[in-house]
Amino acid sequence: MSWITKTLSSSIGKKLIMGITGLFLCSFLIVHCGLNALIFANDHGELFNAGAEFMAHNIFIRTMEIVLFLGILLHIYQALMLTLQNKKARPVGYAVTNGNANSKWYSRSMGLLGTLLLIFLIIHLRHFWFVSRLTDEITSGQETLFGEMKEVFESPLWVVLYVLGNVSLAYHLMHGFQSGFQTLGLNHRKYTPIIQSIGFGFSIVIPFVFALMPLAIFFKFIQ
């Protein structure tokens, strides 16, 4: 093994990959949330459709879409490898544990929250990405992405599922955001409290705005 593969396959190296891909996915959330928030213009989706149109044809965005998928896959793969390894590190468990005495439940449940997010992501991709990228429904003009949104969020089942998906996202981010910086070794007495505050705000605001979208459409606040 070369020094590079040795570094990346060490426990700290694997965590480095988790941290970098995780923070990269956070940056994607900002773009995704910002663009989707265009529906709140409440102009029958005109602005939002224009935004979606731009994203669909901009070469930089399309390239980043591939990087994004690679980022997600790497994050999932590495999480799986780390989880298996961590399970092996404690083959015999305790009869009694009191985790709440020393840590937050969501910091100990990143794998579970991540799995819920993955299930949500598959459904979400099937709803929107599949339709806009792999069919010609939108390019042929018979449907807009906003129209697709209104159609999906007619169903209370999907609305509830999207809200729950965002609750998982909120808790995943609440630990993940600041944990990513710690893993990269970016810890400082001045900046770590700031990072933690930003991380907390980020983990509330982004999922909240996302969750508002299906709710606003279901309750017809947005036409």
Partner: peptide, 26 residues
């Protein structure tokens, strides 16, 4: 195992070793 930054170690450490050392190690 690997570190997932739950902070349980620091909370239970009898000498209250700080998590800053883990960031320094990284």
């Amino acid at each position: 195992g690997s570190c997932t930054n739950t902070g349980a170690c620091h909370a239970e450490c009898p000498k209250e070793i700080s998590l800053e050392h883990i960031a320094r190690l990284n």
